[in-house]
Design a protein around this nucleic acid. Structure first.
Length: 294
DNA sequence: ATTGAGTCCTGAAGGC
DNA sequence: TGCCTTCAGGACTCAA
């Protein structure tokens, strides 16, 4: 399931193939994913140059020469697969089940095919004027990037004091921090010895050493993301890099998916509980509830 | 205004 | 073997 490190890995791969390429054909096998495709998607992109491919939170942003940007979210199971096609002919392309949208790109006399595949169709692809991106319905409300300097203990403390949410819910809230998902939240909380069930406002108000602990949490979030980035992202069932290979950060999980295993810090059995409809994996000893901690 | 529940979707995995 | 149920989760909408 693509979170920030996975999306960033995909972005880098896509950029190396597609930036400065010209889109010369677009095909779609359906009219929608999670949301409808823009109605003119297959025509508005013709003869348009891909200037850059950026990332914001978990969104891929294809910046185009016509003043618009394609917004691509991978949802749970989305992937971009890119192929160079030496002797290009549309009939040469073999499509897979759940291929939904295909960009045909010419770059330095090479033909490149970029295919968006998404079995569960939780992903979506939209188009927005580049100048309006920061006002976009999806991009406009996003909080700070966790790897930026704007994300720090002071920022967390100020936000968390006002929120009556569990740590789990607060860290998954994309309007506070953008780009974290279930995996890295579980891992970062475990590394920081914070229970996913503790309330963030209680934590800030009742715990004298809250600022110091939030600093540790901040550092651990950045650290776990960087480790995943260096490994090319995590791979669960759904996520593939653009060349079809998988990342290998999943071998480094300490709690995610480890229910029944021993905590590597204290040998206690890792537990799993459903929280806000999501699975939380945690060590009850290393991550005590707030009232037990004070 | 804030927060939580429900919704979308397919494939994998587990139970009988 | 095979069918059925359950689960996974990002970000929306809706309701309390």
């Amino acid at each position: 399931m693509p979170e920030l490190p996975e999306v960033e890995t995909v972005r880098a791969g896509l950029a190396s193939f597609l930036v400065n390429g010209i889109i010369f054909d677009v095909q779609k096998f359906r009219d929608n994913l999670r949301y409808d495709f823009p109605k003119d998607l297959t025509t508005s992109l013709l003869n348009v140059k891909i200037l850059n491919i950026k990332r914001r939170a978990k969104y891929l942003l294809f910046e185009l020469s016509n003043g618009s940007t394609i917004i691509s979210h991978l949802g749970m199971s989305g992937s971009w697969n890119v192929y160079g096609v030496p002797n290009f002919s549309a009939s040469n392309i073999k499509y897979a089940k759940h291929d939904h949208l295909i960009l045909f790109v010419k770059k330095q006399n090479k033909n490149i095919v970029a295919i968006y595949n998404d079995p569960r169709r939780f992903g979506f692809i939209l188009n927005e004027k580049t100048e309006n991106l920061n006002k976009n319905k999806f991009l406009g409300k996003l909080g700070v990037e966790p790897l930026s300097d704007d994300f720090n203990a002071k920022y967390l403390y100020e936000k968390f004091c006002k929120k009556n949410l569990s740590f789990k819910a607060a860290l998954l809230d994309q309007t506070i921090i953008s780009g974290l998902g279930n995996i890295y939240v579980c891992e970062a909380l475990w590394r920081s010895n914070i229970s996913p069930f503790s309330k963030v406002n209680d934590f800030c108000k009742k715990l004298e050493q809250a600022p110091e602990k939030l600093k540790i949490l901040c550092d651990n979030i950045k650290q776990v993301l960087k480790e995943a980035l260096n490994s090319g992202g995590s791979t669960l069932k759904d996520y593939k890099k653009i060349d079809g290979t998988t990342g290998y950060f999943q071998h480094n999980f300490s709690v995610y998916g480890k229910v029944g295993n021993k905590c590597i810090k204290c040998n206690t059995i890792i537990e799993k509980a459903t929280q806000n409809g999501r699975s939380s994996f945690f060590c009850a000893v290393c991550q005590p509830l707030l009232n037990e901690e004070i």
